[in-house]
Design a protein around this nucleic acid. Structure first.
Lengths: 319, 319
DNA sequence: TTGTAGGCGTTATCAC
DNA sequence: GTGATAACGCCTACAA
């Protein structure tokens, strides 16, 4: 039989007689034949791989977002390639971007949790459908975004602490996406709204060690009774430093984390934190891209709402 | 000029006159031209993407291994695609495998930390270069492996506890790769070598909650003075249950974790655990594949050694 | 040093 | 319903 007959039974769109179809299927099974997606793409123009560009793939939020993207992509028959962007230095960035863009792509997804994500977005050509997964809900250029709205989370956590009777809430921040991360904006907004002048932000990294350093500074200041941390890892570092300095949580100082990592509820004391659905964020981000490639029109950004989970690391301030 | 001249300056292998080369480069820069890797692969047969197949991409060990693979791959000019294998159910497994194998691949890497990894290895065609990243050092068929040798880690941790004076060491296990995970084998081997009959293993999952359940059972047994956990998350769940039951760590019971996740040293008390270089494992695994594709010969498996990190969750048993 | 021609694996467009 | 054939974007002999 002819080559095109085989192609027809494989693609399934055109009717083929029962006998030929059966023979083709038998041969396919016997030979373990797999169509070559690259060749299909070449001729049909249909692209079935999406690239995920991210600063990091290990930290909880990043990894969980990637999981959501991969799940959704696989369900839709898309393959996911990952490209870690390690540096803003033009050559390194260009190299990493060029590497993933060298394949024919249906589109790209940028995990925009940090400043590097913003820069990555700028380095991508306008010709490619690009969407982003981000924290804070903001106006961010022309690329469709799926947001977590961690600004609302930061606000809620701060209001909760203030409502407990704390006169002020200190803040240990993760590195910011833009001027501030969304959660930092939320903290600040809630403070202003309550008529409290926000104390100086303690700028930290993402890891427990940098939280530990921040905790040591906080422990020296007797006016500190409540601390909002930019993530859970920071929070546990802060708590350890506090404990070593003889300050009790939550009796002397309340601590709130962010993200609700699996270990948070096992901590001593169980950590009050802001829960965010990263896996859902990943799925929603992929949906944005899927919609774009299907309809040809840029989709509208979407947003979700984090949720404050109150556990035992927070209480009213000491009398 | 002709099409092939352009191709020549792009590939760089054949000499081209200075003038033409400059004009081509100018045009490339102006148009933002990127060669289509799929088309290159089609004609040259050179493959530049590797697939990573894994049960999970979020948990620490998996995520860190993936990071190592990606770093090494990017440095060598390879693109990484990920395929999460969620189920051993033939159709689901075949679907996921077919999806990633539909692209032209230089090879595949299987993260063989669990039984699903073993099954995935079996589902991959012999024709494709396939290597695996694994925990226990064992004889495992014909596919080259990079090992972590967590069996040695389990042995060392158990010997350490026994050396502290504990009469027995209980074990809370993560799901096994084969009959037992390497760390469980190591525990068992050390117990036998010391002439101690290993108590019944408490089988758990990976997460703190399942460690918590195990901890509740352990707390009821007064003969328990030392516990080796299959990972750090399990360990913190165990410790929380122990604390709630009024058992002190390490005074009443010593607890050892596995993996040395970033939070381990911030725990109260700081967790004694077995540190493993997952990122290095990922790099080594990729090197195996790179060597294979470069030389055409199957490389030999490699192994590393984990390291016991003694902190404050372990002590001599109560008098 | 440069141009021409053939082919990689697949689909789409024609005739038949 | 089936079979030729062109074309996708690129590389590589080979000829000039």
């Amino acid at each position: 039989m002819s080559l095109s007959t085989v192609s027809r039974v494989l693609t399934g769109r055109t009717p083929v007689s029962e006998g030929l179809r059966a023979r083709v299927e038998a041969a396919v099974a016997e030979l373990g034949y797999r169509p070559n997606a690259a060749a299909q793409t070449l001729v049909s123009g249909r692209r079935s791989t999406v690239a995920v560009l991210a600063r990091n793939t290990v930290r909880y939020g990043y990894a969980a977002t990637l999981q959501g993207i991969e799940e959704a992509a696989r369900a839709s028959g898309f393959v996911v390639t990952i490209g870690v962007i390690e540096s803003e230095e033009p050559d390194a960035m260009k190299g990493a971007v060029d590497l993933v863009l060298s394949q024919p792509l249906a589109g790209a997804i940028v995990v925009e949790f940090d400043a590097l994500g913003v820069a990555t977005l700028d380095a991508l050509p306008e010709s490619l459908p690009v969407v982003a997964a981000a924290g804070a809900r903001r106006k961010v250029g022309s690329r469709p975004h799926a947001f977590l709205d961690d600004e609302a989370g930061g606000r809620e956590a701060t209001e909760y602490l203030l409502g407990l009777g704390h006169r002020t809430v200190h803040h240990v921040a993760i590195p910011a996406t833009r001027a501030r991360s969304g959660r930092s904006w939320g903290w600040r907004a809630a403070m202003k709204a309550a008529g409290v002048e926000p104390p100086k932000v303690i700028q930290a990294s993402y890891d427990p060690d940098s939280g530990y350093d921040a905790g040591q500074r906080l422990a020296r200041d007797p006016s500190v009774t409540a601390v909002l941390c930019g993530n859970d890892e920071l929070a546990i570092g802060v708590m350890r430093a506090l404990a070593e300095a003889g300050r009790r949580v939550p009796d002397d100082i309340s601590v709130v984390g962010f993200d609700d990592q699996p270990f948070a509820r096992m901590w001593t004391p169980p950590l009050t934190t802001v829960s965010q659905d990263f896996v859902g964020l990943g799925r929603r981000t992929f949906q944005l891209l899927a919609e774009w490639t299907a309809t040809g029109r840029k989709p509208r950004s979407t947003s979700a709402s984090p949720r404050l989970v109150v556990r035992s690391s927070t209480a009213a301030p000491p009398a």
